[in-house]
Design a protein around this nucleic acid. Structure first.
Length: 323
DNA sequence: AGTTGGACCTGACTGC
DNA sequence: TGCAGTCAGGTCCAAC
């Protein structure tokens, strides 16, 4: 066993370590607040700028397309009109192709209309805007060369992310977002909506919260935190929630996500998520349960529990505060 | 139709 | 020292 000196040192770091009996790097994945942070920062940087060229460095990132060339044909020569978001994905809304950029005139019909470039961040996706001279970071999956000498780079360590393009700006009709549920801050998302969405869902609350077809944008971190704020065990059957429970869940969803956006997202450890400027988010400081297994609940002091979800992933919750 | 579990992928860590 | 095994996560797909 540890000496008393060691025990003291352990106590000092207990707050960090107790959550991770095995201290492998647990990735903080980009969910809605992280994607929204990047969207907010990206739009003023690149709106109005034309994409000269796209280079796919990891072919897997463009797997929705027959070839990277197909992706290039859709986006090259177009001006970025706006930067949007759907769920956990950042979308670049591109205008009609700008001529004078060396494209043959006979491709005029293909150039007409609008295109949406979709960047789904997956687990470890980052977006950077850098001068084109900047050395290319390891795991850079794709980069967009802009007309002004900068590049938008999509870096994705674990390659779960995705970059694709579709004609038009109607994101909800695109295969990437097929069947997606409402945005948590939309009018469509309401306690009444939850009632019908949960009606035939006997799966655990956490599983249903993370289902993008129910609510768009929630992943593990925020499913844990939302369940805590709502005072509901993540192991509950979604269909078994009462009206007042759904009301609390609805409110907690909006509160937690709004707070996390204010904090520029979560960077639960020194790895993975950073905002557009490489700065970690701050929401991890306000987490009550996520990755706090064994630590004292900030409300009641009860040790935070970890239960495996179907598929083996952990749900973190307080046995006393959550019923 | 809804639920569950495996595969994908990488880096960090554990145990031999 | 080094290698094999384990784990995390979002999403898709197959099986129940």
């Amino acid at each position: 066993m540890a000496s008393s000196k060691q025990a003291g040192a352990e106590a000092l770091v207990a707050g960090r370590r107790a959550a991770a009996p095995k201290a492998w790097a647990e990735a903080a994945m980009p969910e809605l607040p992280e994607a929204e942070t990047i969207r907010c920062q990206l739009e003023p940087e690149v709106a109005g700028v034309t994409i000269r060229k796209i280079r796919v460095l990891i072919a897997r990132a463009a797997r929705e397309h027959q070839s990277p060339r197909e992706l290039a044909r859709l986006v090259e020569g177009r001006r970025i009109a706006r930067v949007g978001r759907r769920g956990k994905a950042v979308v670049l809304l591109l205008g009609p192709r700008c001529f004078g950029s060396g494209l043959p005139k006979q491709r005029a019909s293909a150039a007409a209309g609008q295109v949406t470039l979709i960047i789904r961040l997956g687990m470890t996706g980052l977006i950077q805007v850098v001068p084109d001279k900047e050395p290319i970071a390891k795991h850079t999956a794709a980069l967009l060369e802009l007309e002004d000498g900068r590049q938008i780079r999509f870096v994705d360590q674990r390659q779960f992310g995705l970059i694709s393009a579709r004609p038009g700006h109607e994101v909800d009709s695109m295969p990437e977002f097929e069947g997606y549920g409402p945005e948590p801050f939309s009018d469509e998302f309401s306690p009444e909506y939850l009632k019908q969405a949960f009606a035939r869902r006997s799966a655990q609350l956490e599983v249903v919260l993370m289902d993008q077809k129910v609510i768009a944008g929630i992943g593990k971190i925020y499913a844990d935190e939302i369940s805590f704020r709502a005072g509901l065990r993540p192991t509950r059957r979604a269909s078994g929630l009462t009206g007042p429970m759904r009301q609390r869940l609805w409110q907690a969803t909006r509160e937690v996500l709004a707070e996390a956006i204010q904090c520029r997202g979560s960077s639960a450890n020194d790895e993975t998520y950073r905002d557009l400027y490489g700065i970690p988010g701050e929401f991890q400081k306000r987490m009550y349960v996520y990755q706090r297994t064994g630590e004292a609940c900030r409300i009641c002091g009860t040790p935070i529990k970890r239960t495996a979800m179907p598929g083996g992933r952990g749900m973190h919750w307080c046995p006393k505060c959550q019923r």
